[in-house]
Amino acid sequence: MDTDTPDLDLIARARQGDLNAFNVLVERYQTGVYNLCLRMLGAPAPAEDAAQEAFISAYRSLDRFRGGSFRAWLFRIAANACYDELRRRKARPATSLDRSSDEDERPVEPPDTAPSMEERAANVELHRALQDALAQLPHEQRLAIVLCDVQGFDYAEIAETMRVSLGTVKSRISRARSRLRAILLEQRELLPGFIRQSGEEQ
């Protein structure tokens, strides 16, 4: 099957029971879905589970897809899977807070391509700081900023994914960025030079 086949054609085939057609969609979006879950949940294992649940749920819910952006619809399902996991964590605070004792909660350590050891270490620290800062955001703000800055969605697609107005998207992203900035400014030594300098001037 041609990997360039449009989403809507694959969806039509999948609705008729063609699992292979749906799996083409899975392969097309699985990196994005997994990274969304990873940034929302902060650890690989639950992100993996949430991503898998999202694809299963999407396949079983294909009849409810009413057109528009399939990516927005799919990412909305993935976001709901993440919300479910976050709610389960909230219901089990003893396990969710004790992350170091949970082998499944491995920290996010993305591959690094920095040329030098120093830069590599700095990037790892920065990425950890960013992930920790993301974890401090309210879920809705976290989703909005991840969709915008990590996934590269525009505001209209974020609004479609989150089923909110453009104004709400704008507000959530603005608040998320401001909060991230404040959190990161408390760790200036980790930040890119520009933020560090401007923070010291204040």
Binding site: L19, F22, N23, V26, E27, Q30, T31, G32, V33, Y34, N35, L38, R39, P44, E48, A51, Q52, F55, I56, Y59, V108, P110, P111, D112, T113, H127, L130, I145, D149, V150, G152, L180
Partner: peptide, 15 residues
């Protein structure tokens, strides 16, 4: 945030 690398999925999620 945009410099955060896209992490490859640890496995395929095909059904």
């Amino acid at each position: 945030l945009r410099d955060l690398p896209q992490v490859a999925a640890p496995r395929s999620f095909t059904l």
